Computed example of a mutant assay.
Amino acid sequence: MPALIDDPSVPAPWKRVKDEATGYEYYWNVETQETTYDKPTTESVAAAARAAEGDGTFDDIGRAEYAHGGNLTYDASQKVVTFDAAPPEARILEYRKKHEISVTGGGCPPPFLTFEEAQYPPDIMGEIQRAGFTAPTPIQAQCWPIAMAGRDIVGVAKTGSGKTCGYLLPGLMHIRARNNDARAGPTVLVLAPTRELAVQIKEESDKFGYASGIRNTCLYGGAPKGPQLRDLRSGCAVVIATPGRLNDMIESNLVSMHQVTYLVLDEADRMLDMGFEPQIRRIIARCP
Rank of each mutant, 00 (worst) to 15 (best):
P227W: 10
R50L: 12
E89R: 06
G221E: 12
G132S: 09
A135L: 07
G244I: 11
E20S: 11
P243D: 04
Q119W: 01
A52N: 09
M173D: 04
N253V: 00
A157Y: 07
T261K: 08
R230K: 14
A268D: 03
A85F: 14
H68N: 14
Q119T: 01
Y167N: 00
F58T: 04
K98I: 00
Y37F: 15
K18R: 15
R215M: 13
G185P: 07
C287M: 15
L93I: 07
V199D: 10
S161F: 09
L229S: 00
T114M: 05
G54E: 10
G226C: 00
E116I: 00
V81F: 14
E31W: 13
R281C: 00
A135K: 10
A47Y: 10
H99D: 04
L197P: 05
D75W: 09
P2V: 14
A211T: 13
D269L: 06
T164N: 03
F115D: 01
H174T: 02
A182Y: 10
A21L: 15
G226A: 14
G107S: 12
L219A: 04
A157L: 07
P11E: 09
R130I: 05
I92C: 02
R215P: 00
P40C: 06
G166Q: 03
M257H: 02
S212H: 03
D248H: 07
M1N: 07
A85G: 00
F83E: 04
T137Y: 10
E204K: 07
K225C: 01
A86Y: 12
R215I: 03
Y262N: 02
F208L: 05
R96W: 12
G107Q: 13
D75T: 08
A46R: 15
L263Y: 13
M274K: 08
C143G: 10
R96T: 04
A21Y: 09
V239P: 01
T217I: 04
Y26S: 02
W14D: 01
A285V: 01
T187Q: 09
A3W: 07
A12S: 14
W28K: 02
D55P: 00
V239Q: 03
A135M: 11
N71E: 14
S252A: 15
D273S: 12
D248P: 01
Q259L: 10
D231A: 15
K158T: 12
G160L: 12
V199Q: 15
N29C: 14
K18A: 04
G244P: 04
I139W: 05
T194G: 04
L72C: 01
H68R: 11
S212L: 15
R215D: 08
R282M: 02
S44I: 08
H68E: 13
E89S: 08
T57V: 02
K163Y: 07
C165E: 11
K202D: 08
H68V: 01
H99Q: 12
G70S: 08
G132W: 07
I5V: 15
G222Q: 11
A76V: 13
P110Y: 04
K207C: 06
